[in-house]
């Protein structure tokens, strides 16, 4: 009983973390067909911005509750700046290249950003643990869990809901969907695809930075954290079906729960879980779980 509960809570917490990271990645892919390696850097930049601001904020003796808003603000500003800078300043000149070339382009950006982060923030760890410990903990069935993690689940649910709603229930969301399904046709019908690209990329960058900023309180922000999450996010997105936000949601849940199960029952398998799950899903659903159907070119 205890075990099942632990698996469930741990799995869902991990899943929501995964989804936060993967959401921006899959959105950018869906609209722009760019598998954005630099998404890891957005995550790292969000984490660094959040952690360094929180550090300054608490050193100033300010009211603690506002630190959560500060995290969101930090992500918003960081995502906006980096997203705009990269899309307007660089990526827009590269559109139309091969998908693989675009992966390499974003890999180049990742390399540059990794060192830029190091030059900006140094290599020493940043901590922003106050928001994490502030909320205390709850005991469920004899096990304590951090309330911050429950908040993370709620935030993720909210993000998923907002994304779903704005994609499916708003006018601009439907325009976005039309671009996802057929870029050329949407353009021909008068959709300003360039503008949509910019907005999508900035939103994606914000989501990446947001994931980083929300993760920062529970970890130590150090060089290289961005690279570590890329493959995790890729796997989640591929399992769910590239470009599908709902797919990423389900993919994150599957990976998160299987990982928790493995940690509790078979710790040695932890390293394989994500690739095993990805292999299994791809073996039976070669396009991922919720791939958007595309016409075959004849």
């Amino acid at each position: 009983m205890n075990l099942a509960l632990a698996v469930l809570v741990d799995g869902v917490v991990y899943s929501s973390w995964l989804f936060l990271i993967a959401a921006g990645l899959t959105l950018i892919y869906g609209v722009m067909k760019i598998l954005n390696m630099a998404h890891g850097s957005f995550y790292a930049i969000g984490a660094y911005s959040g952690a360094s601001l929180i550090g300054v904020y608490f050193a100033g003796g300010n009211p603690p509750w506002a630190s959560y808003l500060l995290l969101v603000g930090a992500a918003l500003v960081a995502g906006l700046i980096v997203g705009l800078l990269i899309e307007r300043g660089f990526l827009r000149f590269m559109y139309g290249r091969d998908e693989v070339v675009m992966i390499l382009v974003t890999y180049g950006i990742l390399l540059i950003l990794e060192d830029a982060i190091k030059l900006l923030w140094g290599v020493d760890p940043y901590f922003a643990y106050q928001p994490y410990t502030l909320l205390g903990r709850t005991k469920i069935g004899g096990l304590s869990f951090a309330n911050y993690d429950f908040m993370l689940i709620c935030v993720t649910a909210l993000v998923a809901l907002v994304l779903w709603w704005s994609l499916n229930r708003t006018r601009s969301g439907k325009i976005l969907q039309s671009v996802i399904h057929d870029r050329e046709m949407a353009g021909a019908l008068g959709v300003n695809v360039t503008k949509i690209f910019t907005i999508t990329f900035v939103i994606g960058a914000f989501l990446g930075a947001f994931a980083g900023a929300l993760t920062a309180p529970g970890i130590s922000v150090v060089p290289g954290i961005g690279i570590e999450v890329i493959i995790l996010a890729f796997a989640v997105v591929v399992i769910g079906g590239l470009g599908s936000v709902g797919g990423a949601f389900v993919g994150a849940l599957i990976v998160g729960l299987s990982r928790a199960l493995s940690v509790h029952l078979y710790p040695d398998g932890e390293l394989f879980v994500i690739y095993g799950v990805m292999g299994l899903v791809l073996a039976f659903r070669p396009q991922g779980l919720f791939a958007i159907a595309g016409a075959r070119k004849i």
Binding site: L104, V105, Y107, G108, I109, L110, L111, I112, D115, A116
Partner: peptide
């Protein structure tokens, strides 16, 4: 890494 990234781009 930055040099390598710039060269790649």
């Amino acid at each position: 890494q930055m040099i390598l990234g710039i060269a790649l781009l």
